[in-house]
Computed example of a mutant assay.
Amino acid sequence: FFESSDLINWRKLSDFDRNWVFECMDFVELAVDGDSSNKKWLLYDASFDYEIGDFDGTEFVTDRQVGKGDYGNHYYAAQTFNNSPDERTIIIGWMPTRDKNIFIDNDMPWNQQMSFPSTMELRTTENGIKLFRNPIKEIENLYIKTYSYNNKSINYINRSLDRINPKLIDLSLNFKPIDNDEFKINIRGHEIIYKNQHVEFQKTKIPAKPRNGKISIRVLLDRPSLEIFVNDGENVMTTYSVSDKKNTDVSLSSKRNMRINLKLNELKSSW
Rank of each mutant, 00 (worst) to 15 (best):
residue 181 D to C: 08
residue 63 D to I: 06
residue 58 T to Q: 11
residue 132 F to G: 05
residue 51 E to W: 02
residue 59 E to S: 14
residue 144 I to V: 15
residue 142 L to Y: 15
residue 184 K to D: 06
residue 30 L to R: 04
residue 107 D to I: 09
residue 121 E to N: 08
residue 226 L to M: 15
residue 30 L to K: 03
residue 196 N to G: 10
residue 208 A to F: 02
residue 165 N to T: 10
residue 161 L to W: 12
residue 259 R to V: 10
residue 123 R to F: 00
residue 211 R to V: 14
residue 173 L to T: 09
residue 131 L to F: 00
residue 214 K to H: 09
residue 33 D to Q: 00
residue 133 R to F: 05
residue 259 R to D: 13
residue 134 N to Y: 12
residue 151 N to T: 12
residue 107 D to A: 14
residue 112 Q to T: 14
residue 163 R to M: 12
residue 42 L to D: 07
residue 261 N to E: 13
residue 14 S to R: 10
residue 226 L to Y: 11
residue 66 V to Y: 01
residue 80 T to V: 06
residue 29 E to S: 12
residue 140 E to S: 14
residue 249 D to S: 15
residue 174 N to A: 09
residue 156 Y to L: 10
residue 123 R to D: 00
residue 28 V to N: 08
residue 54 D to K: 14
residue 22 F to H: 09
residue 73 N to D: 13
residue 170 D to K: 03
residue 97 T to F: 11
residue 39 K to E: 00
residue 184 K to W: 05
residue 123 R to Y: 00
residue 237 M to R: 06
residue 174 N to P: 02
residue 150 N to I: 14
residue 103 F to V: 07
residue 210 P to M: 01
residue 83 N to C: 10
residue 43 L to E: 05
residue 72 G to L: 02
residue 27 F to D: 00
residue 32 V to F: 01
residue 230 V to W: 02
residue 131 L to G: 01
residue 54 D to I: 14
residue 224 P to F: 04
residue 76 Y to C: 03
residue 175 F to W: 06
residue 238 T to W: 08
residue 50 Y to R: 08
residue 234 E to C: 03
residue 181 D to T: 08
residue 61 V to T: 15
residue 143 Y to E: 09
residue 64 R to V: 08
residue 72 G to W: 01
residue 11 R to E: 09
residue 228 I to P: 02
residue 128 G to W: 03
residue 143 Y to W: 12
residue 229 F to G: 06
residue 51 E to S: 02
residue 271 W to C: 11
residue 81 F to V: 13
residue 243 S to A: 15
residue 107 D to G: 08
residue 74 H to R: 05
residue 61 V to W: 09
residue 168 L to Q: 12
residue 54 D to W: 11
residue 142 L to H: 06
residue 255 K to D: 10
residue 103 F to A: 07
residue 193 I to W: 05
residue 63 D to S: 09
residue 67 G to V: 05
residue 270 S to K: 15
residue 179 D to M: 11
residue 163 R to Y: 13
residue 158 N to Y: 08
residue 213 G to T: 03
residue 221 L to D: 10
residue 245 K to P: 15
residue 264 L to A: 05
residue 67 G to I: 03
residue 56 D to S: 02
residue 10 W to Q: 00
residue 36 S to A: 09
residue 125 T to A: 00
residue 248 T to Y: 11
residue 232 D to N: 15
residue 205 K to S: 08
residue 149 Y to A: 11
residue 102 I to H: 13
residue 220 L to R: 06
residue 209 K to Q: 12
residue 94 W to T: 06
residue 68 K to G: 06
residue 55 F to S: 05
residue 9 N to M: 06
residue 242 V to H: 11
residue 181 D to P: 05
residue 132 F to M: 04
residue 135 P to W: 02
